[in-house]
Design a protein around this nucleic acid. Structure first.
Lengths: 367, 367
DNA sequence: GTGGGCGTCTGAACCGGTTTAAGTGACGAG
DNA sequence: CTCGTCACTTAAACCGGTTCAGACGCCCAC
């Protein structure tokens, strides 16, 4: 039946006005008398007219779309807990504004910046989200040169041409360290993500600073890569050292979970011989053995807020940096007081269902 | 400097021809003399002209974009191993064709179909991927009524208006069951995903059929929801029954991992008292304790192939259903011969680092 | 009575491509 | 010499909106 899609001229004809007036009425601009306006809107309703996004995009020189390019090694692709949650948050904002998200998933950083530049040059998006920032990241400058609006996630403020939407991960790491210290740990190690990433580095520095604040000697640390294999290898390295740590703070859950397994395979029992903490609170973290003490951030909220800021920027409204509520510690059973020291570090195997030590901690959530 | 973006008229003027001829030359259509063509392309190159995607989209009534709407409960959002890999595969194809992927992440099925219809009505995409199909799924019919091209992932062939790109998950499940049977298991239970989903149902049926083929009585089964919490609860239910299974086939890794933990908390040791297998081979599966025997599919390849088929369909080329190589079993240490039966089903706790039984299995990969 | 100002509305240009029908020139055939 | 054909090229319409300059009618002030 109604084959040819209805356009603005159909509505104009039906309402007995010019198509310019239909446009005015639709975007409720001044200069349209109230009853004409109602008549036009009624006609539009009756004909089921939806203004063509494509025509509007051409005319307005806008894409009504925002872009995100994700660079992930195949290893991590499936399990990264961040992006889908972030995108879910972004989506709640965009869908109300008639915008849409364009996503690219690429393998490495070279392809990542190519992806952003292609989106920009082709005018596929009005602005982009910059995640996984690195030290001396080339993206802000290059995209700024193209005149593309952007927001950066967790960038250092200051020299950036773009507003930052920050969610402090340092607070969660510091809480982890303090929590472990309160349990009686003194040698607290760290397995970091790549320190070339801002978030890899900031978590590592948060750990180091917390140790210093508590008057503890800086424990052993290993730089790793956020993958389970990397976390397991780093853990073996830490535990084979002369004075192995009694607790390890990992920069993410995947490494913490694999590290826990690696420790157990070296004959340690958890959390007796080794306490571990993670970061992200991915779904399986609460269901591993023992349940993982970790840090949780409101990733969905991060996406929402980032989208709001980016849309403001795209629309020319002024924006400032935004700070979101920091990541919070979630205490579970993978952290416990250190076992009294015996000569050997090899202890009897995991005693099955572990006791449920309840640890008094400041401003932390328990589960 | 070069502020106003260069358009087709700039190129035409520079090459001393009409803009129509520029268009012809660019889309290499017949009727342009070779040297004129070269001159035009040289001008375009020199001026750095990129045809405006927006103008082309309006003119051609095409979006040069494909759409994907993901419905996931918040619980699963972060850890679903499927989508980012699938998207990565899609991307490799789209980027070469000048197409782009529009992604929406929504909470439930109602929002999912709304999302698809919005993308269709607004002309934001030329076609969509339909994933997570359910029995009596309303989407194919509704989208077909809107005239939107689509491909379905793993749909039953036949009554669908759309081509299907299938990756057989049944083969992997059947291999899991056979593998466990070869190890000596006779009571093999199953924890399924929601059977309202085609893939939840097909995995469950593959398990049931494999049991029947092997002449084994259908073991206990529980329908669950693909989440860790659901997997743990289902596991407790299975193990509390009168004749608990000695092995459980889970419909995904998240449930298997959580199920393994739940079993251990009931006092069982793995894999001695209970063998478990998963599905997906997510990154932490190989690093849990014990490493998880699971099933792996080429999700990236699935994305590639789906994108190819969908682009063919959009361009009006004929398409038929496609079958990809089936999912394959990956044998690790969470599956082992059942321990000799004792009266009590409660056994001594997990003996720490487990022995490394090597199981002989047919056409399976080991790691 | 005329002019100015205001509210309402329209025609036409514009965004930057694609497409179609018509036009131009060269060339061979009659 | 004229006409038809063919290869090449162009002007103009089109996609479906937005926007701007101006037209029109009306009321009020001078």
């Amino acid at each position: 039946m109604a084959d040819r899609p209805v356009t603005i001229v159909d509505v104009a004809r039906h309402a007995g006005v010019s198509k310019a007036l239909v446009s005015f009425a639709l975007n409720d601009r001044p200069g349209v008398s109230p009853d004409t306006r109602d008549r036009i809107l009624a006609s539009a309703e009756e004909l089921g007219w939806r203004p063509s996004h494509r025509a509007r995009a051409l005319s307005a020189s806008r894409a009504f779309a925002l872009g995100l390019v994700v660079a992930r090694p195949p290893e991590l692709l499936g399990v990264d807990p961040f992006f889908l949650s972030f995108i879910a948050g972004v989506e709640t904002v965009l869908s109300q504004q008639g915008h849409v998200l364009v996503l690219q998933v690429v393998r490495d950083e070279a392809a990542e910046i190519d992806g952003y530049e292609r989106l920009a040059r082709d005018g596929r998006v009005d602005g982009v989200f910059l995640t996984d920032l690195r030290h001396d990241d080339p993206r802000p400058a290059r995209l700024h040169r193209l005149g593309l609006p952007a927001v950066t996630l967790n960038a250092t403020s200051g020299e950036s041409p773009y507003p930052a939407v920050r969610l402090d991960d340092r607070a969660g790491i510091r809480a982890s360290v303090r929590h472990l210290a309160e349990l009686g740990h003194a040698r607290i190690g760290h397995v970091s993500g790549p320190r070339s990433y801002l978030h890899g580095d900031s978590r590592r520095n948060a750990w180091a600073e917390a140790m210093t604040e508590l008057g503890l000697p800086p424990g052993p640390e290993v730089e790793s890569d956020f993958t389970p294999a990397g976390g397991a290898a780093a853990t073996r390295e830490l535990l084979r050292a002369d004075h192995p740590p009694t607790a390890v703070v990992y920069a993410n859950d995947l490494m913490a979970m694999a590290g826990a397994t690696a420790a157990r395979e070296l004959g340690l029992s958890l959390p007796g011989d080794l306490s571990v903490t993670g970061f992200d609170d991915i779904a399986p973290a609460a269901h591993m053995h023992p349940p993982l003490t970790t840090v949780r951030a409101d990733t969905v909220g991060w996406g929402e807020r980032s989208a709001i800021v980016l849309l403001d920027l795209v629309d020319g409204r002024t924006c400032t940096d935004v700070d979101l509520p920091p990541a919070r510690l979630v205490v579970r059973r993978s952290s416990a007081p250190p076992a009294p020291r015996t000569a050997s570090s090899h202890r009897p195997p995991d005693p099955g269902p572990s006791p449920h030590p309840r640890s008094p901690t400041s401003r932390t959530t328990e589960e």
